[in-house]
């Protein structure tokens, strides 16, 4: 389904943000990508739909190499890749419905988009998705009137409106409180499984990743250094990815592990 081959990205300074990353997602599964801030998780996801241009390597989605498509081809390929963002990235002055329908922008004409004149099946699909994410009745609210959790659920509906072959999810819960985070993750993973959509999910929260993902990739300094099931994500594996630390859940408050956790939301926001 998705094959990443030797994907690399270096910014002008010459530092490699993404260093020769290869892996394959052969079945519809939820793949969590974990790793310290600056490990290149966000760059990896953005290199796949080329919001960031990779410097070398290729990303192949269902047999098509996305990395050497021209701009028209790239737009076609992006239609098949839904994306969900840390800051939700809804168009704030538009209504919930317009935001959800914008997932179909690649399929309608300019004039239809301008007049908000989408095909009936798109509209009923949008209503269904809003219902599935628990926002039925919200269609005429403006996006800037919603809470963070509600916005992210609109973000999920927008991505799924594309009927994507691949979901790219960039830190979906980093701006949400723990309870809302779990709710959003649950909806996201349920829908991904139900629609058999392979999902690449950046996440800094290791327990959430272990809870919800089918497979975990670990990154450090732009390199892929771990690939396994959540069960294989042992303390040794975490030490490999994040460095030496006391990973036991029962580690005492005031120990380095707790401080690390307390810091993580800011770190994630800074990414």
């Amino acid at each position: 389904m998705l094959k990443i081959e030797a994907l690399s990205k270096s910014y002008t300074a010459g530092v490699a943000a993404l260093d020769n990353v290869s892996f394959e997602v052969a079945e519809p599964q939820v793949v969590a990508i974990i790793g310290p801030s600056g490990a290149g998780k966000s760059t990896l996801i953005r290199c796949i739909n080329r919001l960031v241009e990779p410097t070398a390597g290729s990303a192949i989605l269902n047999g098509e190499n996305v990395t050497n498509l021209n701009s028209a081809g790239l737009r076609k390929a992006r239609r098949r890749m839904g994306m969900i963002f840390q800051e939700y990235n809804l168009v704030e002055r538009l209504t919930v419905m317009e935001n959800v329908l914008s997932g179909r922008l690649g399929y309608v004409s300019f004039w239809q988009a301008w007049r908000r004149n989408y095909p009936p099946e798109d509209i009923s699909n949008a209503f269904k998705l809003l219902d599935r994410v628990g926002l039925s009745g919200f269609q005429d609210q403006r996006a800037d009137a919603l809470s963070g959790g509600q916005r992210q659920r609109v973000g999920i509906a927008r991505a799924l409106m594309q009927k994507p072959d691949l979901l790219l999810v960039d830190e979906p819960t980093a701006s949400l409180d723990p309870k809302t985070s779990r709710q959003v993750m649950r909806i996201l993973v349920e829908l991904a499984h139900e629609l058999s959509t392979p999902t690449l999910l950046n996440i800094h929260d290791v327990p959430l990743a272990k809870n919800f993902a089918d497979r975990v990739l670990g990154m450090q300094d732009g390199k892929l250094i771990f690939d396994g099931t959540p069960d294989e994500l042992t303390e040794d594996a975490l030490t490999l990815i994040y460095g030496e630390e006391d990973w036991k859940p029962e580690a005492k408050a005031g120990s380095p592990a707790e401080q690390e956790n307390a810091d993580s939301p800011e770190q994630a926001a800074a990414v």
Binding site: R116, F127, K128
Partner: peptide, 17 residues
Amino acid sequence: MTDGTAEAGYPDIWRRF
């Protein structure tokens, strides 16, 4: 949802204004 037809039980008309 991948078949591209209308979803039964949901409205298929929506107007911004």
